[in-house]
Amino acid sequence: MIVFIAGGVRSGKSRIAEQAALALHADRPSSQLWYLATARSSDREMAARVARHRARRDCRWRTLEAPLQLLDPWRTVAPGDSVLLDCLTLWTSQRLFADGIDPGPRRQAARPAQAELAAVLADARKRDIHLVVVSNDLNEELPAQDALVRWYVRELQRLHRLLARRADRVIEVVAGQMIEWPVVAGSGR
């Protein structure tokens, strides 16, 4: 089962994603429940947010850090486990900008991120891993004036479309409330 949860910044996505992962994991008590964390505690605000997220989770959760690479920590996950990846937005920005991308080769720089996400999704299916992925919906704001920001939002939306095509459930969170979108059969699973 792959679940994609998106919504605005601080809309309640992470709490709903945690509940979804716990519900999926409930039928697999002998397997492991993972939190695949992409955030870096780079400043006080982010450190406080990470601490709040950790405090919400009980002892059933084990954390894997994945600020730049998903596949390396992903290899720790066993068949039948459940994983919450939080959040795709941070991972994408860190991944795309890790090497100080200049405006020229931007399109090529995004391809490895897309390939890595696609590999995680395919492996989750192959090994029967429940995967819940959280991401921010950034394209509901006014279009960015900066070309690099527009490129980043466009690349993030490409990842969202890939994920939505392969997901079993697509959920939007608005003001802490879930809206489940219909998934088109045969859309890329």
Rank of each mutant, 00 (worst) to 15 (best):
W91V: 08
R75F: 00
P79A: 15
V83M: 02
S82C: 15
L70M: 12
S82Y: 09
R75G: 01
L84N: 03
D72S: 13
T76A: 15
V77H: 02
V83I: 01
R95M: 09
L88K: 05
W91S: 05
C87R: 01
S93L: 05
T89R: 00
L85F: 11
L85N: 09
A78V: 00
D72L: 08
A98I: 00
G80Y: 01
A78N: 11
F97G: 00
V77A: 09
R95W: 05
S82A: 15
T89S: 15
D99C: 06
R95V: 00
D86F: 03
C87Y: 07
D72C: 05
S93A: 14
T89N: 12
R95I: 00
C87K: 06
D86P: 05
D86T: 07
G100A: 07
A78S: 14
L96V: 04
W91C: 08
L88S: 11
S93F: 07
W91H: 02
D81P: 04
R95G: 11
S82Q: 11
F97H: 08
T92Y: 01
D86S: 02
D81N: 10
P79M: 03
D72Q: 14
L70Q: 07
W74I: 07
A98L: 06
L71W: 05
T92N: 02
L70E: 07
L84V: 12
Q69G: 11
R95Y: 11
Q94D: 12
L90P: 00
